[in-house]
Simulated assay, not measured.
Amino acid sequence: MDEFAKKVRDRRLQEKLSQQELADRVGISRNYLSQIERGQATNLSWQLMEKLTSILGLKGDPTVTQAEMADIPLSLAEFAKSAGLPADDTIMLARLKYRGQQPTTPEKWELLYNVIKMTVGK
């Protein structure tokens, strides 16, 4: 079971939520949530991960960000620092890959981030 899957399951149990209750809040099926918690659902969208972390109160959880911050590409870290990105946004970007590839320069990370912001409307 991967770390994110374990955190989702553990927090859901802490909050005394059934899988169905959490799935309804997030807008997914109970079966899909079960797959997520077992680490069988891979390549989760960042929107879904954002919903899960927000609803479960994992957003500010330092154990989530510290573990993932170690895997931040240097070019992304440079962009995040210069733009003053929140840790959650930096982690979201670090999770993104297109055909196994990620941007390789701070300028390309900035372009990707701006496209996401415009698409989501924030």
Rank of each mutant, 00 (worst) to 15 (best):
T90W: 00
Q66W: 08
I36R: 00
K108M: 10
A41Q: 12
D89Q: 14
E50Q: 15
P73S: 08
L48D: 05
S75R: 02
K51C: 10
P106D: 12
E110M: 08
Q66S: 11
M92C: 09
Q66H: 05
W109T: 05
K108C: 04
K108G: 00
T63V: 14
L52H: 00
A77V: 09
I91F: 01
T42D: 11
M92W: 03
G84K: 14
Q102E: 08
G84M: 13
T65M: 11
L93R: 00
G60D: 15
L74H: 10
E50S: 15
L85K: 03
P106Q: 09
L48F: 08
M69K: 02
A41V: 07
Q101P: 07
G100E: 07
T105F: 07
T65A: 12
Q40M: 14
R38T: 04
A83Y: 04
A77N: 13
V64H: 02
P106G: 07
L74R: 09
K81L: 08
S75N: 02
T90Q: 00
P62S: 05
G100T: 09
E50W: 15
L56Y: 03
L58G: 03
R38N: 10
V64S: 01
Y98T: 14
T65R: 05
G84V: 11
L76H: 04
K108F: 05
T53L: 11
W109Q: 04
K81H: 12
Q102C: 03
G84T: 11
Y98N: 13
I36P: 00
M69I: 07
A94D: 03
L56Q: 02
A87V: 11
L48R: 09
P103H: 02
M49G: 09
I72W: 02
A41K: 15
K51D: 10
P106C: 09
I72G: 01
